[in-house]
């Protein structure tokens, strides 16, 4: 194969990390929600899509990307708050299939609503002027926006990690994922914790949505492929594991990037091959705990 230089490989690695960053953001929320609430959130892709559209709406309203970037996840998180409180909460204690079906249906409803509001066609979302172009990162020129995406993801993962590992609230989250009953015995209203975790998870999905908007087309259906990808990443990393979501997200991104370089025909398939391989060796995923699914 000609034209494959070390620099090209290194650049493709960065492309993979940027792609993986979106996977990380999605899988982190999915995994956190599953780990604590044992809710398999099939509406996660729809929250991602809503994040992009709220971004479009806010950008139209304010003309300012940065304001949109801050408020779109907050609004999506607020939607998540309402969904947990009024739709998911009544289903706790009835088995894993009830919230699964509910969120599946909710995802369809959200997609239809956006179709009614914005139509089937994609809407444009320009890269903010400050983040256009490419910068020299030593191995070649790399799109500035993708670097920004990697940086935002890194910051968010760091913030989440500090929140979970270093704060009292994080302590409750770690204990509650393992044994919600003892957390209640020790005076914590666990339903509030679940509410907040659901809001954080969906808010981060919304952030992934608006961050992807300048790179992928903003269409009502944009959440459905992403949902599948997010599940693949979560399964590879291990359901309920934050570090698993991060490692697997980046790994899947890099694997997809390299297969599309060497065997473009297989690039869509590669993540499933990776998932199958991981599941054969470690059925609980790279960082998952055995028997979490009961």
């Amino acid at each position: 194969m000609s034209g494959i230089t070390p620099d090209l490989l290194a650049l493709q690695l960065f492309t993979g990390l940027a792609l993986g960053s979106v996977f990380v953001l999605l899988a982190v929320g999915l995994s956190l929600i599953f780990g604590l609430l044992t809710v398999v959130n099939f509406a996660h892709g729809a929250f991602y899509m809503v994040g992009a559209y709220v971004g479009v709406f806010l950008l139209g309203l304010t003309g300012n990307f940065w304001i949109s970037l801050v408020f779109a996840p907050i609004l999506v998180g607020t939607l998540g708050l309402a969904v947990e409180r009024f739709l998911v909460r009544p289903l706790y204690g009835r088995g894993i299939d009830y919230p699964l079906l509910l969120t599946f249906g909710l995802g369809l409803v959200l997609v239809e609503l956006v179709r009614i509001l914005y139509g089937l066609e994609g809407v444009p979302f320009d890269t903010p002027p400050l983040l256009r172009g490419a910068v020299d990162i030593g191995i070649g020129y790399f799109p500035l926006y993708r670097l920004f995406l990697i940086a935002v993801t890194a910051l968010l993962v760091l913030a989440l990690w500090l929140f979970i590992e270093r704060t009292s609230y994080g302590l409750i989250i770690r204990a509650g994922a393992r044994d919600p009953e003892i957390v209640r015995v020790l005076g914590v209203d666990i339903s509030r914790v679940w509410l907040i975790v659901f809001a954080i998870g969906t808010g981060v999905a919304g952030l992934a949505g608006i961050l992807s908007a300048p790179m992928r087309s903003v269409i009502p259906d944009m959440g459905s492929t992403v949902l599948v990808e997010a599940f693949v990443v979560t399964v590879v990393g291990g359901m309920g594991s934050l570090i698993g979501a991060v490692v697997a997200g980046l790994l899947v991104g890099v694997v997809v990037a390299f297969t599309s370089l060497f065997w473009p025909d297989f690039s869509d398939l590669s993540m499933f091959v990776l998932m199958a391989a991981v599941l054969l060796i470690r059925p609980q995923g790279l960082f998952g705990q055995k028997g979490l699914m009961g």
Binding site: L171, L186, G187
Partner: peptide
């Protein structure tokens, strides 16, 4: 029902988070 993966100190802190 101690939380196995937490340290002793973290388990004790858990007894105080709501207190």
């Amino acid at each position: 029902r101690i939380v196995p993966a937490l340290t002793v100190r973290e388990n004790l802190r858990l007894g105080l988070v709501a207190s």
